[in-house]
Nucleic acid binder design. Structure first.
Lengths: 107, 107
DNA sequence: TATATAGGCAACTAATTGGTTGCCTGTCAA
DNA sequence: TTGACAGGCAACCAATTAGTTGCCTATATA
């Protein structure tokens, strides 16, 4: 679960979209995820493998199906240990204020 | 300043190290940054160009020198608008994950 | 059992990336 | 004015990556 693997996994828009899909509906199978991506099953499978390698997605076998679950822990770790250091001070306060004014939202 | 450019810029360990260097001492020139990286000047220059493209670094010409400054705004934006979404349901998701992953499994 | 379904593995291609070397421009200072 | 210094531009190379196609195994079900 190296930090580099997480950053690299997050660098691809297709993989971020996969995380978004799982965030919207957790536990989807490979074929279910394929239908939302304009890509072959094998293409999606490779991206999922990279997300698994970064521990951003964990899976569970259910018979012949494989359920994919989002694991937000590595993202939280990055936010805490790396991004936090660049957010300190005034910008952090502004971001917080902005969030409060916009109210709690998923987007 | 697309989000994709920021993610891609952050994906490389050399570029993250450059940001760390600027975080430690802001306004360094290209040659100053080169001395801390085991790389040619042109290699560092390319990385800096990518960071500039993502607006993570802004520059100021001073005669024949070019000072590089860290701009934390895009990082704050990512943390606020994207990572926050996955951190929000962090505890709930982890509990949910734990529950689902319990039970008989061949992994 | 036979067949359709869910997924895995491997090879291959095309594009991108990280890094190099070589040369050029612009600026400062003796 | 002349040389040294800071940086930019472009070509090039090796390694990685995104995506494909083809074939394979395993499981569920008519």
């Amino acid at each position: 679960m190296s930090m580099d693997a997480v950053f690299k996994a997050l660098a691809d828009p297709t993989r971020r979209q996969l995380l978004d899909n799982l965030h919207a509906r957790n536990g989807q199978t490979l074929n279910a995820l394929c239908k939302e991506m304009g890509m072959t099953r094998q293409g999606v499978s490779k991206h999922l493998a990279i997300l698994e390698e970064a521990n951003l997605v964990v899976t569970r076998r259910r018979g012949r199906e494989k359920e994919h679950y989002l694991n937000p822990a590595p993202i939280a770790e990055i936010a805490d240990r790396w991004i936090g250091k660049f957010e300190q001070g005034r910008l952090r306060a502004l971001a917080d204020l902005k969030k409060r004014l916009e109210g709690p939202s998923d987007e």
